[in-house]
Design a protein around this nucleic acid. Structure first.
Length: 278
DNA sequence: AGTGTATCCTGCAGGC
DNA sequence: TGCCTGCAGGATACAC
C-alpha cells in the first residue's frame, strides 16, 4: 500500500494529535511486526512523550522527547488509527501493536498482511539508519541533475531503479509507473540510457505526481486509510497504473500491462515506445 | 551488477 | 456455495 504520499498523509494526521501525549504501555499483539526482541522494544517506548511525527521515504517516523525514534514501515497493508478513549470505535480489523496513552487515548498499528515492521531507533543510530536510504525526491536539493547522476550509474530498468529505496527514497510501484507515463519513458528503459532532457522530464513528473498525490491524501486501491480513516483521492487521477486495456488519456491507445522484476507495470505502447530518450 | 524466483501473510475477485 | 488460481501499494535473500 503505502508509498511516500500515503506515509506523508499519515504522518501529518498523527502529528496533529500526538505531540505532548505520553505512552503508558505498548501491547504487542503480533510479535512478527516488531524488528528485534519484543520486550526491549516495548520497554523502550513505554513512558515516553511524543514530540512529533514525520516521514523518511515510505517510513512514518515518530520522535520522542528524548530523541528516541520509532520507525514504522507500513509494508503493503499497515495503517494507524487513534482514539481518545476506550469507548471510541477503533475500526481495527487486524491490530498488531496497541499504544495505550496516559490520557486514556490509544493508537493502533493495524496490518492485515503483516509485511510492515516497527523499529525503535536510538538517537545515536538515527543517522546511520537514515543513510541507508537514498535522497528524498521532494527535497529542495533533489535536482534534475542529481537524478540524472543517479540514473547514469545503473543500467537496470528505470522502473526497478525507481523502486530501489537505497537510490531514491519513497517511490513505489504506483508512482513510479505514473511518473514514467508522464515523462513518456518506457519502464524497461535502461537507466543509463536516459539522457539529460528525459531525466529532467522524469524529475518534473516524479515531483508533480508525488505532490499531487499528497494533496489528494494518497491513493486508495484497497485498504489504505489515513490516520483519520479517510480514503486517498488520488486513485481517479491515475493515468496508467491499473488501467490495462483502457485508453491512454493522451493518445487513446490501450494501456498495456507488462510484468518484470516480479511486479506489474502499465505502459502506453505509443507514448512510451522507448524512442524519446534524449 | 542485474535478473528471476521465492519468501513473509491475508483477502479478494474471477473462473468453473 | 465451494474450490481453485492469480493478484496486491513492500522488502529481502538467494542462485545464476
Amino acid at each position: 500500500m503505502p508509498e511516500l504520499p500515503e506515509a506523508e498523509t499519515i504522518a501529518r494526521g498523527l502529528d496533529s494529535v500526538l505531540p505532548g501525549r505520553v505512552v503508558r504501555r505498548v501491547e504487542v499483539v503480533r510479535e512478527d511486526v516488531v524488528r528485534g526482541p519484543v520486550e526491549p522494544f516495548a520497554e523502550a517506548v513505554a513512558g515516553r512523550e511524543f514530540r512529533g511525527v514525520g516521514r523518511r521515504g515510505k517510513n512514518v517516523v515518530f520522535t520522542f522527547a528524548d530523541s528516541l525514534r520509532l520507525v514504522v514501515n507500513l509494508g503493503m497493508s499497515g495503517r494507524f488509527m487513534t482514539g481518545v478513549d476506550a469507548e471510541t470505535e477503533s475500526g481495527s480489523t487486524h491490530p498488531a501493536v496497541v499504544f495505550h496513552l496516559e490520557d486514556g487515548g490509544w493508537m493502533i498499528y493495524d496490518d492485515v498482511r503483516r509485511f510492515g515492521c516497527l523499529t525503535a531507533v536510538p538517537a545515536t543510530e538515527w543517522t546511520r539508519w537514515s543513510r541507508r536510504l537514498g535522497p528524498e525526491p521532494l527535497a529542495h536539493g533533489f535536482t534534475a541533475k542529481r537524478l540524472h547522476g543517479i540514473l547514469a550509474r545503473s543500467r537496470s530498468p528505470i522502473r526497478s531503479l525507481l523502486l530501489d529505496q537505497r537510490r531514491l527514497a519513497g517511490v513505489g510501484n504506483i508512482y513510479a509507473v505514473e511518473a514514467l507515463w508522464f515523462a513518456r519513458i518506457h519502464p524497461r528503459t535502461p537507466a543509463n540510457a536516459i539522457g539529460k532532457a528525459a531525466a529532467a522530464r522524469l524529475h518534473r513528473a516524479l515531483r508533480r505526481v508525488l505532490r499531487n498525490a499528497i494533496r489528494a491524501g494518497g491513493t486508495t486501491l484497497r485498504n489504505y486509510r489515513d490516520a483519520n480513516g479517510e480514503e486517498g483521492r488520488f486513485g481517479r487521477a491515475l493515468h496508467a497504473y491499473g488501467r490495462e486495456s483502457e485508453p491512454c488519456t493522451r493518445c487513446g491507445t490501450p494501456i498495456e500491462r507488462i510484468v518484470f522484476g516480479g511486479r506489474s507495470a502499465f505502459v502506453c505502447p505509443r507514448c512510451q515506445d522507448g524512442s524519446a530518450l534524449p
